[in-house]
Write a protein that binds this DNA or RNA. Structure first.
Lengths: 152, 152
DNA sequence: GGCTCAGGTCGATCGCGTCCACGGACTGTG
DNA sequence: CACAGTCCGTGGACGCGATCGACCTGAGCC
């Protein structure tokens, strides 16, 4: 991970569809060299995926909720996690410090679907309680921050 | 937004670097037709960006926090929002229903940086209080859910 | 010095991106 | 019904990009 690798990562974070030729121009190497570097970054797990950022409402996911989960004492955290993983509405899952073991970000189409999701969560073995907050609007999401900007 | 557009969106959500030729094969159209459709999806705001998904620890962002913000009574929400926007550590910003007006997802390199961020947030005009939860681990994030899966 | 390896460039080949002309289905109109 | 216009697609052409292999160079090490 030298400076050129960081540049490549930053460029791809801002536009994952840049061609190797364009990346090469930006970092001052040849296209094959960039191709090899990007391949290594993918293989080493630094670059995990390339995703289109889609307007959620356009694909019928107009409701965003953030849900805190309190586990039962003695719950098997791995089992709870697997249950969450099986619910596609749960887009993100963080294991948290604090009373609430998990914080989930879920997207659904309607409030009725959110209700059903919450019922399912509360029924999940190991889940003691849930606390749901509704996002009225998403101001921004997954904004890539410049890599190592405030190095001073 | 017909079924083919949805397929294209879904394909690009899972791999934003697919070539037009490959997309064309997958949806059964010619490459120019796909090119035009994708262009229209971008122009209409359905496809907002293409981003590489990067392992945060690899670029020095090992600490993830979720921060709830309570506004002062009489605060100017737009000003608060602009102050947040100027902080690159804040990767996501949701405007919430409830006592806490905002929920922020922030990523920093160290706990010390998180402390400085929280101090800055508390000093921001319009912010009455903050409540920070630390993510011990990110189980997954921004998992794309299949478009219109449970149509039945 | 000479080996070896990592990591680059260069050149060639093949497939892809992209522009353009063309064509069929649908629609509204005389 | 004939006609024209529009939308949306296909196919061909051409230049650029992706990708492979051969070769070059500098660093580290006997």
């Amino acid at each position: 991970m030298d400076a050129i690798d960081l540049s490549l990562v930053e460029l791809l974070r801002n536009n994952a569809r840049l061609s190797y030729a364009e990346l090469a121009r930006q970092v001052g190497l040849s296209a094959p060299a960039v191709h090899e570097r990007v391949g290594k970054l993918e293989a080493s797990g630094v670059l995990r995926a390339y995703r289109a950022d889609v307007a959620p409402e356009a694909i019928g996911l107009g409701v965003t909720a953030l849900i805190g989960i309190v586990e039962d004492s003695g719950a098997d955290t791995d089992d709870v996690l697997e249950a969450f993983r099986a619910m596609p509405e749960i887009e993100s899952c963080y294991f948290m410090a604090g009373v609430e073991s998990f914080l989930l970000k879920a997207r659904v189409g309607t409030i009725a679907e959110l209700e059903r999701l919450i019922v399912r969560l509360n029924r999940t073995p190991g889940v003691a309680s849930t606390r749901t907050g509704i996002a009225l609007s998403t101001k921004w999401e997954n904004r890539p921050q410049p890599v190592t900007p405030p190095a001073g």
